[in-house]
């Protein structure tokens, strides 16, 4: 563990102040499941941890008609454990339920998953298809950043010095909408995704009125696969349209070969997972 200091922020403003004064080597400490390990292994230069878990707004969760707001410090188990979320935002519940194991989920957050900006981050494809928007506080006040624009590359995001995510907002989804998320890992838990995917479908009868498809671990950042969505939108959902979406996903994937998966495997899995999530999302949309 590199030498560092720990500070606890009691309010959003105090957190912003601490982060600004700490400069680029100050880091938000949310669940700590990424950042503590990174500091221990000296993978990032960190001199200050700013613990945001004693800020009420950051720890709260609210379901309103316009949508769902999840504080950036809310641990995953509270997210997937919420019956409303499981019902209305299935992809979010599915992805948060398998990040790490039970003990990791007691601490880890979606804010941390997003800010950490791993290409394989499991919640990010769900955030993409759910249209999630991060509320960011900083020295110049607040701004909203759509999840799709948040990460800029592996381990890097749009946040400026002094900024942090206060909460993440998930707009209410239209009627007859279903979402689903899935990943492939070699074991049944405790693995980093070889590939992950999420889908959102809004249906009118058997016709798809809107579709969103996201794909992870196959590019430097999570992909929002417009072409796959286009293969579905405005058409009846058929085996052929699903297959076309899967092909579009495979084509969009530009993965690398590493110890966790090969290019061939990841491209192939892109198609498989997109197909599977579309089918499950459709089932939910019809229900």
């Amino acid at each position: 563990m590199q030498a560092l200091k720990y500070a606890r922020a009691a309010s959003v403003d105090e957190a912003v102040k601490m982060l600004r004064e700490g400069g680029p080597t100050a880091r938000v400490l949310a669940g700590g499941t990424d950042v503590i390990v990174q500091a221990r292994e000296r993978r990032r230069q960190i001199e200050l941890f700013v613990d945001i878990k004693h800020i009420d707004e950051v720890m709260s969760m609210r379901m309103e008609p316009r949508g769902l707001t999840i504080g950036a410090g809310v641990p995953l188990y509270k997210i997937y454990g919420d019956a409303q979320i499981a019902r209305h935002y299935a992809a979010l519940a599915e992805s948060t339920r398998v990040i790490g194991g039970t003990a990791i989920q007691g601490r880890a957050t979606i804010g941390g998953n997003l800010a950490n900006a791993s290409p394989a981050a499991d919640s990010i494809p769900a955030l993409f298809v759910l249209g999630a928007v991060a509320t960011v506080a900083g020295p110049n006040g607040r701004r909203e950043v759509p999840a799709t624009q948040f990460c800029t590359g592996p381990g890097v995001n749009v946040l400026l010095t002094g900024e942090f995510i206060v909460s993440i907002f998930f707009p209410a989804l239209p009627a007859h909408t279903g979402t689903a998320w899935e990943r492939f890992i070699p074991r049944n838990e405790m693995d980093i995704a070889v590939t992950n995917a999420a889908a959102m479908l809004t249906m009118n009868g058997e016709t798809v009125t809107e579709a969103r498809i996201a794909l992870g671990a196959v590019a430097p950042r999570t992909l929002y696969v417009e072409a796959a969505a286009a293969a579905l939108a405005g058409k009846p959902l058929t085996d052929a349209s699903i297959a076309a979406a899967a092909v579009a996903a495979r084509d969009a994937a530009t993965p690398i070969d590493d110890m966790r998966g090969s290019i061939k495997q990841r491209k192939h899995l892109s198609g498989v997972l997109v197909e599977r999530t579309i089918r499950r999302a459709a089932e939910r949309a019809r229900a």
């Binding site: 503590i36 221990r40 601490r107």
Partner: peptide, 27 residues
């Protein structure tokens, strides 16, 4: 393991199961 992958360090923190290797003492 010291990185959250084995659970040998499991403890309860405010009633919740956590890996104590992934919690700062100051917390």
């Amino acid at each position: 393991c010291n990185n959250g992958n084995c659970g040998a360090c499991s403890v309860m923190l405010n009633g919740r199961l956590v890996n104590s290797c992934c919690v700062m003492a100051a917390e």
